[in-house]
Computed example of a mutant assay.
Amino acid sequence: MRNPSMAAFKQQKVEDFYEIGEELGSGQFAIVKKCREISPGLDYAAKFIKKRQSRTSRRGVRREEIEREVDILQQLQHSNIITLHDVYENRTDVVLILELVSGGELFDFLAQKESLSEEEATRFIKQILDGVNYLHAKNIAHFDLKPENIMLLDKNISIPHIKLIDFGLAHKIEDGVEFKNIFGTPEFVAPEIVNYEPLGLAADMWSIGVITYILLSGASPFLGETKQETLANITAVNYEFDEEFFSHTSELAKDFIRKLLVKDTRKRFTIQQALSHPWITPVDKQQALVRRLSVVNLENFKKQYARRRWKLSFSIVALCNHLSRSVKKKIFMKQDESGRTCESDTEEDIAKRKLIHSRRRSST
């Protein structure tokens, strides 16, 4: 049951208490900006969430969805999860004052490295698992685990501290209450989401399997040429460990991924089983040595990373141009009267869903 005080967002102007600075990022209906508390002068991140103004509108986030995100964040206090500091509200936005996570995305950091052993990789995976373990112990599912939501507190150390962010899709899973929804980023969603089946904590474990696969190889296990092909690959659990990308990957690592990419949620690894897997927690010296000697395919990872950045830029420009032409045609306006810009949340969201360029599947 929700604590009534959670919904009582402060109605004062956030600018009276925080100096709002540069933009750090944006999503479908949110913009994140750096901010500094006027007193005592600490730095935070301000997430401006656009509120839906009417029931018939499709722009903005419904008030109850924002309340759910805030309610969940208020319950969380863990070193691998972003912390909520304060909440303000005005006529158009709800503003979440969050812990400032300034180290960038984990995958961006890895793309800059010259080499990476599986032992080093598991230190990052272990932090992700620790954060998810905390959530699952509270029966909270994140439902949007993907590289863009795995951030670093500070990248200027050898093994940076991971923070899980963006709890906009997170839900508390309650006994006896069936929850179904179709949401998330297609590349990372579990089969039960695609098939509109009851959802639970297991959906996060599937996403961790996909993330681990990409981290070790640079390839994406289910991403197809189209969204429909991606979803079909997911429901069929159509993936393989191509020798081209996994020639230096240990069997321990592959086994860890196999135990997560299981269609039957009852047989899929739980968070506790994942933490106990010998790839994460070796039980003898031989397993520890295997991790130390096995390496991540950084060459392909970097190649895919470069394509990913190029594809994102290209997608945004191409999509803006296409939508600009469509809008002009639809409302019968001249080119200089359209006023259409590339600032649409929808455009950016679609572009973000194409972030990782997959390998082309073989026809065999």
Rank of each mutant, 00 (worst) to 15 (best):
T185C: 02
V132T: 15
R91G: 14
V87W: 03
K113N: 14
R353V: 04
F241E: 13
K330P: 01
A137I: 00
D130T: 03
A318P: 00
K334V: 02
I97M: 01
N321C: 14
A203K: 08
E114P: 04
L275M: 14
N80Q: 05
V177M: 09
Q28W: 08
N156G: 05
I81R: 01
N300F: 08
E120Q: 12
D175G: 14
M6R: 15
S338M: 15
K172L: 14
S26I: 03
A7S: 12
K180G: 07
L261I: 10
F241M: 08
K51F: 14
I125K: 06
S326F: 06
L135S: 04
V87L: 00
E119Q: 13
K163F: 09
G176Y: 01
L153N: 07
N238R: 08
H142W: 11
K354Q: 11
K254V: 07
R307I: 00
K34R: 12
E174Q: 10
Y88R: 01
Q53D: 02
C342D: 11
N80D: 03
P191Y: 08
R353W: 02
Q75N: 05
G21D: 09
I173A: 02
V177H: 12
S338E: 09
F109R: 03
D255C: 09
R308I: 00
L76N: 02
R291Q: 14
S5M: 13
E22K: 09
V95P: 03
G103P: 06
L84Q: 04
L289P: 11
G200A: 05
L129M: 11
V262C: 01
F222L: 08
N233R: 11
I162C: 06
M6C: 15
L298G: 08
L116H: 05
S362F: 12
R52F: 01
R307T: 02
V94K: 10
R68P: 01
R292H: 10
I49N: 10
I214A: 10
E174P: 00
Y239M: 07
R123L: 07
V132I: 15
F269S: 10
K113G: 15
W206D: 04
T249D: 09
R340G: 08
E347G: 12
Q75F: 00
I234P: 09
K10H: 13
L215N: 04
A111T: 00
R2I: 11
E348S: 12
S5P: 00
V262H: 06
Y196C: 09
N156E: 15
L135P: 08
F109E: 07
F9A: 01
E337K: 13
D166A: 04
A253H: 04
A203G: 06
H357V: 14
I150S: 05
D336C: 02
L319Y: 03
